[in-house]
């Protein structure tokens, strides 16, 4: 089968960007969308042209590196899948497929489909952890955690930090990402000592990086490759209000 790719090309953060069309032969529908981009790139390089830049690494939906808006949807049309998990069997002969970078004020374009998501790391430096030094821990079974809490914490911790939630949100909010981290620790006894400090500090960092605020659009939940639930945002808000109530600030 054959498809037409319309790919966002942009030389650098300040360079002009535009969609460029490429006709692509799809030798096998078992191939992934990124493998199709590989094939297109092989052709471009052989002709001496610049390959399409796109982020990817694990190619199995876990590292969070891949980050494209495909046909208007962050990570493309499949539910619960990252860009790298999109397969060509999803498309049919003659389809036109558009690939653009994640767009958000906090994610400047590096080149073509590659963006800079370091803002998410900076938010993590402001409380996305438990302050425990190596060597200071008690026996792992000394603190019991109800199975149900551990499972819910794991649901939240499954976040791969891809930023699709930000790209999908009309407010470019990172609240699903932050909510997932705050929830993981709010659900576990290990997170309790820093419960107040964490949520205040991460919220502040989020604002400082230029991420917006949730207005219940739920676009984030719809595109999240790990199906992190919007209830984590509700928990983030509850934790925030609670923190305001119990803290002096």
């Amino acid at each position: 089968m054959k498809v037409t790719l319309r790919v966002w090309r942009q030389t650098g953060p300040d360079g002009p960007g535009r969609l460029v069309s490429y006709e692509a032969e799809v030798p096998s529908t078992d191939m992934s969308f990124l493998e199709l981009l590989d094939t297109v790139n092989e052709g471009l390089i052989a002709k001496g042209e610049d390959a399409i830049a796109f982020d990817h690494d694990c190619r199995e939906g876990i590292c969070g590196m891949c980050s494209q808006v495909i046909d208007g949807q962050p990570h493309g049309p499949d539910k619960a899948a990252a860009t790298c998990q999109l397969h060509m069997r999803r498309f049919k002969d003659g389809d036109v497929i558009t690939a653009e970078p994640f767009r958000a004020k906090a994610f400047p374009v590096v080149k073509d489909l590659v963006v800079d998501r370091s803002a998410l790391d900076r938010v993590m430096t402001c409380g996305g952890f438990v302050s425990v030094n190596t060597g200071a821990a008690v026996d792992a079974n000394a603190v019991l955690v109800p199975k149900d809490d551990a499972e819910k914490a794991m649901d939240a911790a499954a976040c791969i930090g891809c930023g699709a939630c930000v790209a999908a949100c009309p407010n470019a909010a990172a609240m699903l990402f932050v909510g997932a981290k705050v929830s993981q620790f709010a659900l576990l006894p290990q997170g309790a000592p820093e419960r107040v400090r964490r949520v205040l500090s991460m919220r502040k960092a989020m604002d400082k990086e230029g991420f917006g605020h949730c207005s219940n659009e739920a676009e984030c939940e719809a595109v999240c490759p790990k199906e992190v639930k919007i209830s984590n945002i509700a928990r983030l808000n509850r934790e925030f209000i609670r923190a305001l109530a119990v803290s002096d600030g």
């Binding site: 952890f129 425990v132 060597g135 792992a140 914490a153 794991m154 620790f185 290990q190």
Partner: peptide
Amino acid sequence: AIIDHCVAQGVPFAR
């Protein structure tokens, strides 16, 4: 000690 430390960090191991 690795398991102890990871649990203290909030790693949600199966329970």
